[in-house]
Design a protein around this nucleic acid. Structure first.
Length: 198
DNA sequence: CCCTGATTCGC
DNA sequence: GCGAATCAGG
């Protein structure tokens, strides 16, 4: 990937909007956060020598304007809240693990309903949960990520029918290098156990 | 451990 | 110019 005018302007906007280098890198695709920081340097952007933003600090007022302009095509924002999550994922998964190769900037984050910089919003929604009919465990509501939105630390447990357009991935935070979140890692393990038992 | 940006330096 | 490696910090 090279720094085309389009990618540079996207970088400029996201950077000045306060997004972290890694977030920008994920969005652009094909680059690491180091590349983003390095480029920001040469463009003489930055200036945020402070402690930036983290998970603990709930700082920074809302960024009123912006919101659009970044994406040429608005696309429908995926912020729907499922009232029930069907965990149909069979233990097959991994075939989807090979992605991210041709990541294309896709609409992501709220544009119509809310003007927050995504991430935090999704986490609030994620708090809701439902109970699994079989195990009785708490099933986290999926973040409904599409292929291009998965990263090294997002759960890649498939949800739904791949042939249907409602197909998505769990997307909740995965532990370490595990391809699944804590919950789905357990499911995967049980699935294997049961197969051997049979 | 996770993450953040800043800097260096070989390419 | 680019970005991995490294540094410094939360």
């Amino acid at each position: 990937m090279s720094w085309t005018d389009e990618r540079v302007s996207t970088l400029r906007q996201l950077w000045t909007d306060g997004h972290s280098a890694s977030q920008i890198a994920d969005r652009l695709g094909g680059v690491t956060r180091n590349a983003v920081i390095g480029k920001a340097h040469r463009l003489k952007l930055e200036s945020r020598g402070k402690s930036a933003n983290g998970a603990g600090e709930a700082e920074e007022a809302e960024i009123a304007p912006a919101a659009e302009a970044i994406e040429p095509e608005p696309q429908a924002p995926r912020v729907e809240i499922a009232d029930e999550t069907v965990v149909t994922g069979r233990f097959a998964a991994t075939g989807a693990a090979s992605m991210a190769s041709s990541a294309r900037p896709q609409s992501f984050g709220a544009t119509a309903l809310k003007m927050e910089p995504d991430e935090d919003v999704e986490y609030e929604i994620e708090v809701q949960s439902t109970t699994d009919a079989i195990t009785g465990e708490i099933v986290p509501i999926a973040r409904k990520l599409t292929l291009v939105q998965l990263t090294e630390r997002t759960c890649k447990w498939p949800v739904g029918d791949p042939m249907h357009d409602d197909f998505h991935f769990c997307g909740n935070p995965s532990r370490d290098a595990s391809p699944y979140c804590e919950f789905h890692a357990k499911l995967a393990f049980q699935a294997v156990e049961r197969r051997r038992a049979r």
